[in-house]
């Protein structure tokens, strides 16, 4: 850490002429960055809240009182955990991104870290969306070949919550893709000179 800190200081002390242009570009990018991260946080929070409140209890004639919960399927548990991690991550990086707006000289290092971690979190959120989507699709349509019955005709509220949550998490992964593009693009913008 110390070794990476050192080179920035001399470079800064050298008082190179460029500083004036980068700050303006940087601030613009990071304002957009913060907006996207807040969106990501909102999306992750909404997805988690919607799926956690999806439990439904219903009285059906042949089976008596039955309830469906998201906890009954490991796929949905994974979904909740992954989206919670993404939400926490978005809080931390929003703060980090805000701190860069106040102290622009850290920006390149932060951009690099953001780009790395955003890619990982994108993998997490995309796989969670795929996981929950795969199971929810079987719940919606059933599968005749292996005798898995559809459940969405009985538990409408549960399935509506699932669908809403999945749509929001899909939106969250799109936001993450945009975030990585933004980081890559602003890293790329720093090269030409």
């Amino acid at each position: 850490m110390a070794s990476t800190d050192k080179p920035t200081d001399p470079e800064y002390n050298k008082g190179a002429p460029p500083p004036p242009p980068p700050p303006s570009a940087t601030v613009n990018c990071f304002a957009f960055d913060v907006t996207l991260r807040v969106l990501l946080f909102a999306a992750a929070l909404t997805a988690v809240v919607v799926i956690v409140t999806s439990d439904q209890t219903k009285f059906t004639v042949p089976l008596g009182i039955r309830e469906v919960k998201f906890k009954h399927s490991p796929a949905f548990v994974y979904f909740v955990v992954a989206l919670s991690v993404a939400g926490l991550y978005s809080i931390i990086t929003t703060l980090a991104s805000l701190s860069v707006i106040w102290k622009p000289n850290l920006s390149t290092k932060f951009l690099l870290h953001f780009a790395f971690w955003d890619v990982l979190i994108l993998g997490l959120v995309a796989s969670a969306t795929g996981t929950a989507g795969g199971v929810a699709y079987v719940g919606l349509k059933g599968n005749k070949h292996v005798g898995w019955l559809k459940i969405c005709n009985n538990y409408d509220k549960f399935c509506q919550h699932l669908a809403g949550s999945l749509a929001v998490s899909l939106f969250a992964s799109v936001v993450l893709v945009l975030l990585v593009w933004l980081s890559v693009y602003s890293l790329h913008g720093r090269i030409p000179k």
Partner: peptide
């Protein structure tokens, strides 16, 4: 990046169905 996200979601979907195939799900009679 886009292809990576696609592959990860496909892996998630297939793994989830594979786990139901291996363990079943007694709550919904699968």
């Amino acid at each position: 990046l886009v292809i990576m996200a696609l592959l990860f979601s496909a892996n998630g979907a297939a793994a989830a169905i594979g786990i139901i195939g291996r363990d079943g799900n007694s709550h919904v009679q699968w």
